[in-house]
Design a binder for these strands. Structure first.
Lengths: 206, 206
DNA sequence: TTTTAATACGAGCAATCACTCGTCTTTTAA
DNA sequence: TTAAAAGACGAGTGATTGCTCGTATTAAAA
């Protein structure tokens, strides 16, 4: 068990950082369009205006590319949520609490369509599935914390399950949300999502 | 616009029918394990104990194979649901109605794990996506019909949306259901699914 | 029995994909 | 100014895949 990281820790230049961002942007698009398996690394490189060799200078293989993309999503999600989340949230009326959590989440998912697409993709390797967990836990942990202060009588067991169900419930309605046209349709689907969440949660945590 | 089907309508022997079933069984397994893109037709043939050439004698290409598999699922689902569905259902108490609809559906999905896996697979071609619709409409149509008699005051628009949300809500919780171990865990997740559905539906259709 | 068609095989083809490597250019460090 | 390192390129490689086709076997029709 050596302590140092096995990575050679290459020095990145500003140009390299920019290239990585371009490649991740391209990967987000192509993955969203074709899925992980269906996307070719050459296509990603081409969309980023780079050559295959350049892509592999920054990402060791296709999986590392997807992992890096997922990691960037998690960072952004945490940032977007950090703003919309404060401890006082737990004492809000349920409807308002849901508004405060769901609205930014929907905005994020619609602004980053590659994120839910990659999350939902079933044919990811075990390593990548591991990289997905943090993304799922971002929501789960926050919810669990809220429930803890809001419904302290709940057994941890049931609290966890409630959080998990709430997350999956939302994820199930996401395709409807992602497919909705901005405007009336989106508003209707959003309202319905909140109604479903609110109905479920109030039946559990009062 | 010719009237006859463009298919040469080859005569199948009993042996051929058996082979097709074997190939579809194998396809269900391999698709469930690797996803549509990740599954190779040679692997499907091998698992069925057949050669690639034999597979392509019955299915013109990989997509037709998946379409045939999906069609077989839809048939089975309709059969399983036809039994559990009768017109009197609409007048039942909501909880009981949900039991009668959800229990056989969960049983079916757990008995045919390839079905939800294939349904959820994102990287299917447009043709295959079209083949998915009947499967989705099996549930949707039944729900819409039930709501029509049960909540006649609902606008068709909102009724459709309610059915769609109910279907997606269930589908969102399916991964939890599919992953649960038979017994206590499955019972808990099933109960939670019914609770979510019941809470949502009673908030819409009273 | 003879003939025709359905079933079965599996080596192999053309296309695609993830990834490499030798070479060149640009940037940073000395 | 020069040396070293990072970035960039893209043709090419080995492996895999969907699918074909010539041939052989089995079963049904004549």
């Amino acid at each position: 068990m050596t302590e140092d990281t096995p990575k050679p820790a290459r020095k990145r230049q500003a140009r390299g950082q920019r290239r990585m961002e371009q490649l991740l942007d391209a990967a987000a698009e192509v993955f969203a369009e074709k899925g992980f398996k269906g996307a070719s690394t050459n296509a990603v490189a081409a969309r980023a205006g780079a050559s295959p060799g350049t892509l592999y200078q920054f990402f060791g293989n296709k999986e590392e590319l997807a992992e890096a993309l997922m990691a960037r999503y998690v960072d952004r999600l945490r940032a977007a949520h950090g703003e919309a989340f404060d401890p006082a949230l737990a004492s809000l009326p349920l409807d308002e609490l849901i508004d405060r959590v769901i609205d930014p989440l929907i905005a994020f998912d619609r602004a980053n369509p590659g994120f839910p697409a990659l999350l939902a993709d079933p044919d990811l390797s075990p390593e990548l599935a591991g990289a997905k967990k943090p993304a799922q836990n971002v929501m789960f942990d926050r919810l669990d914390l809220i429930f803890k202060t809001r419904a302290p009588h709940l057994e941890p067991d049931q609290r966890h399950r409630t959080a998990e169900v709430a997350v999956h419930l939302f994820r199930g309605l996401l395709p409807l949300i992602m497919g909705a046209a901005e405007g009336e349709e989106l508003a209707a689907v959003t309202a319905e999502t909140k109604r479903a969440l609110g109905a479920y949660l109030s039946s559990v945590i009062g």
